[in-house]
Structure formats: structure tokens, C-alpha cells
């Protein structure tokens, strides 16, 4: 009698395991790739044009009411390039400089890439991130609970949590100047750029421009548009004279970052069938074992 029950128990747990693993593996590739709307906006960053003047850093801070020095101080201070910087608690974009074997060093602007299928949007526990029609990804201070799961999820390590604040710490990240672009203005960094290293426009058109530049000067450009396919595509696109791995861009696949975890979640909760089925199964077992027990007592 005890053996019988134990076997039942293992059978149940095994069946459960098989169900879960089946869900996890079966649904992984099932989702069809989303087609992105034609009017998605983007920015093409041509790192071969950028001179590292850091005007964009200044304009960004002004546009987001963050403390900043004078514009001249950004031009003059080249010592910041001595070490690699990242967006921080009061900085939404930074420019890093990399040595190259050509005449000029390579300068790379860093900010949120505004993924087509953002991991932060899929992961956020309270849906504080929104992917807008124009492609921008913004964060809503009214919902955020400060769990920092977006920081774990982001493949580009962009969102920054304000550790120094005890009350209302924010998640800091580039919002693609959503307030400006919805009024018909250019993003602050694009507007101020003196050498047109940044081009704002429809993403489909930017891709054509980028491909044209590579085709025209194949010696100058490394044949890859970073952001065209990475993690399912990003709104910000980069051109470079060298392999992007030399410029500290993460090497990422073409699957959207949240694809796997999203399909696990959706698989487990498809019309709530698996949880309800498990509930019914357990209820059934409970009823059966109870009956068996009662009939044994009567014997």
C-alpha cells in the first residue's frame, strides 16, 4: 500500500515535469516575428564622422533638466576619455573615445538603443516601460517600484537606478526626447551635433542611407550596421570603420532579448490552462486518495 502511493507520487511529479518542459521547449520558436511599422523613427550614428566634442552630452542634460557646466567645458576637457564611461545617475548619454590605427581616434556615443522588442518593457513587473509608435522606449515614474529587474534584463546595460536617493529613486535612461519629438522638434543631441554625425529619420530610410554609405566607401566602413538585426533590431543604428567588438558593443544574437522568457510565460499561462489543469489534477488525486482511505477504514 505505501509503495503504491509512492509510485503514484513519482508518476505525478514526473508527469508534471514533462508538461512543464514540453511547454518550455515547444513554444520557444512558435511566436512569429513581428513586422515593425514603416514610420518607426531612428537615429543613424556615423562614428567615422563624430569628433568627440561632447555637445550632445551637454544638450541632453539641458533638455532633461540635469545639472550641467558650460558647453565650452565639454569641448575643452579631453581627459574624460582616459577611461570608459557609462550613462549614470545624472547622465543619460556619454561619448567614449577609442584609439584606432587610422589618423583619428573613434568616438562612440552611448545611450539607450530603443530596441524594437525591448527586454525592459517585457520584464518590468508593473509595466512602467512603454514602447511608443515612433520607436522610443520611455519610463513611467508613476508606476516604478524600484525593483531594478530592467537593469538585469537590458542587453545593453543601459537603465541606471539612483542608488543615492532614499526616497523616489528614479530609473535614468535616454527617452529619445519623447517630449520634444512629439512637438515636432529633433532629439536634443541630434539638433546640437555640429558635424551631423547623428541623423534622425524614419528607420527604413536610415537603413538605406547606411547601406549606401557602406557601398560607396567600402574601404572606410566596416560592413555591418549595428542595430539592424541585433536583438531583433534597435531604433539607434551605428556605422563604424572597425569591428564593433573593438568599440565595446556587446555581441548579441538576432533573437529579441525577451523572446525566450516571454514565450515561457505565455506558454504557462495560455488561457490559464496549465494552472487550472494542475489544480483539477490535484483535486482529483485528493478525492481519489480520500475515498480509498475511507473505504479502507470501513473494511
Amino acid at each position: 500500500m505505501p509503495n503504491q502511493n509512492r509510485r503514484d507520487f513519482f508518476k505525478t511529479s514526473l508527469a508534471l515535469g514533462v508538461t512543464v518542459s514540453g511547454l518550455a521547449s515547444g513554444k520557444l520558436k512558435a511566436e512569429t516575428p513581428k513586422v515593425h511599422p514603416e514610420d518607426r523613427m531612428g537615429v543613424l550614428v556615423d562614428t567615422t564622422v563624430c569628433i568627440g566634442c561632447r555637445s550632445c552630452e551637454y544638450a541632453c542634460k539641458v533638455a532633461h533638466n540635469l545639472p550641467t557646466g558650460s558647453l565650452e567645458s565639454y569641448h575643452d576637457d579631453r581627459s574624460v576619455f582616459n577611461k570608459e564611461r557609462r550613462p549614470g545617475e545624472e547622465v543619460l548619454t556619454v561619448v567614449n573615445e577609442y584609439k584606432s590605427n587610422q589618423e583619428f581616434p573613434i568616438d562612440v556615443k552611448v545611450q539607450c538603443m530603443h530596441c524594437e522588442e525591448p527586454a525592459c518593457v517585457a520584464s518590468c513587473i508593473v509595466h512602467a516601460f512603454t514602447k511608443h509608435k515612433d520607436g522610443s522606449v520611455t519610463w513611467d515614474t508613476g508606476k516604478c517600484i524600484g525593483c531594478r529587474y530592467c537593469v538585469i534584463a537590458c542587453p545593453f546595460q543601459v537603465p541606471v537606478f539612483q542608488y543615492s536617493k532614499a526616497l523616489q529613486p528614479n530609473i535614468m535612461k535616454c527617452d529619445f526626447c519623447y517630449d520634444r519629438t512629439s512637438k515636432g522638434l529633433l532629439p536634443a543631441c541630434v539638433e546640437i551635433c555640429p558635424v551631423e554625425a547623428l541623423t534622425y529619420g524614419k528607420k527604413v530610410e536610415l537603413l538605406q542611407v547606411a547601406k549606401g554609405r557602406i557601398k560607396q566607401k567600402p574601404d572606410k566602413y566596416f560592413d555591418h550596421i549595428y542595430g539592424e538585426y541585433e536583438v531583433g533590431g534597435t531604433s539607434w543604428l551605428y556605422l563604424s570603420s572597425t569591428n564593433f567588438s573593438n568599440l565595446d558593443f556587446p555581441k548579441l544574437g538576432e533573437d529579441p532579448a525577451p523572446a525566450t522568457s516571454e514565450s515561457i510565460q505565455h506558454g504557462l499561462f495560455r488561457y490559464f490552462v496549465p494552472p487550472v489543469a494542475l489544480y483539477t489534477l490535484l483535486g482529483g488525486i485528493m478525492w481519489l486518495t480520500k475515498r480509498k482511505e475511507n473505504s479502507e477504514e470501513e473494511e
Binding site: 517585457a122 520584464s123 518590468c124 513587473i125 508593473v126 509595466h127 512602467a128 508606476k143 525593483c147 529587474y149 525577451p258 522568457s261 516571454e262 515561457i264 510565460q265 505565455h266 499561462f269
Partner: peptide, 9 residues
């Protein structure tokens, strides 16, 4: 504020 695709939720 629900987010069904978030495992953390």
C-alpha cells in the same frame, strides 16, 4: 499595474 509577460510579476 499588471504585466503578464513579466516572470517577476
Amino acid at each position: 499595474y499588471w504585466n503578464g509577460s513579466s516572470p517577476l510579476f
